[in-house]
Design a protein around this nucleic acid. Sequence first.
RNA 1: GGGUCGGUGUCCCGAGUGGCAAAGGGGGCUGACUGUAAAUCAGCUGCGUAACGCGCUUCGCAGGUUCGAGUCCUGCCCGGCCCA
Length: 416
Amino acid sequence: MTMTLDEQVDLLMSGAEYGDPDTREVMRRELRERLGEAHAAGRPLRVYCGYDPRKPDLHLGHTITMRKLRQFQELGHDVTFLIGTFTSLIGDPSDIDKARSQLTPEEVRENARTYAQQAFKILDPELTTVRYNDEWLETLDFADIIRLASNFTVQQFLQRENFANRIDAHQPIYLHEFFYALMQAYDAVAQEADVQVGGQDQLFNILVAGRKLQQGLGQRPMVAIIMGESLPGTDGVIKMSKSQGNHIPLLSEPWDMFGKVMSIPDHAMPIYHKLVLGWPPARLAAWQAELEAGALHPNAAKLGLAHAIVTIYHSPEAAEAARQRWDEVFRSRDGDGMPSDMPTEVLAAPERLIDLLRRLGMVESGKEAARLLEQGGVRLDGEVVAERDHVVVLARLPVVVQVGKRRFVRLIADKR
RNA sequence: GGGUCGGUGUCCCGAGUGGCAAAGGGGGCUGACUGUAAAUCAGCUGCGUAACGCGCUUCGCAGGUUCGAGUCCUGCCCGGCCCA
């Protein structure tokens, strides 16, 4: 670790974005000061990033902040992976549907438990402290909260883009949403944080609420590292999020993960390399040049990306297997295009294909099955079945039922 | 509390004159094409059926008017805006 102070600052500030250059300069300067002081005092900085455990799984989009934490970790600082157990019990205010389904403490604990496991794909478990914010938030009483709230004006909160937009759009803003920011701000105070990492959606919570509250309570305001770019989802445009249905969970199975990565549009490949694989600019530029020169085929590039990502979250072996299966299923133009492994089900008596598909859960409804048959989306051993009344007889067994390109079931007469 | 505007196809956004299974997007699914599950083009996208016919269930909730209601009336619930 022979980086100079300025090199460290450059590294840690890379990817951070604040919407205006002045703020960036301030953060940069403060970070430099702190790093210098910490070094002189021989103590590491306290760095953290908070994650909301309401959703059962983290996805690739979350790894951007984790990689930033990792950088701090590698420079010897104390990293806390903070899990917002308390905040998530309240329910996300901006998401009205979800607000109704409040989680029990047990559910939150369960999610939280796997969260840390998932995070350790990026973070060093030895060097990471996992904490839960109910540790300090639960102890606050109403008087405490009023006192905390008195550090802010309503106008300060209304300036937040999120709220300002909703006022313009005539959408509701609930009072407790203000307290959400307040709670998150208190996280920083309780931990006496030196640095907090977050995404753009946390700009207000960290830069305004968190820093102001620390200052109001006599602490030195922390340095905010707000990651500028967010990862687009599988559609290639909209920020990855579970509610958009375009996310790639860290816990997804190798084959699923591989396929999801393959489904991103070509134009999203560079940002995936940058944000998910964490490629430095030089390497990224070289890769892009190769691509543009035609030396690297886009399909090969994407296969490489999918392989690399599955390798990180599973293993090289799993990535290799997924890739092979991909070739089997999609690359063989005239082959049968079937994966080597697929679920097996028993057919004990002749059954109408429509009923069969529904029974196996390969379609949602009989209507859908009928539609798929009409459109030529259903195959038996690779042959399109068009008659909607087709009956699968026992003499055909074993037979592979295929719906669309990716749903396969092998039908057999009976188990063993 | 008063006035006013609004809540639409259980993914989202959004048209809708009393005849509507309800326009149009997005998303999703299927097919063609290809370099992939990309792009492009086409079709489909409430459920059940002995099924191109019949039935059932949908427009915040509950009633009512009507041969017939998303559309009209009444009450309630939930939101925006203005006033207090």
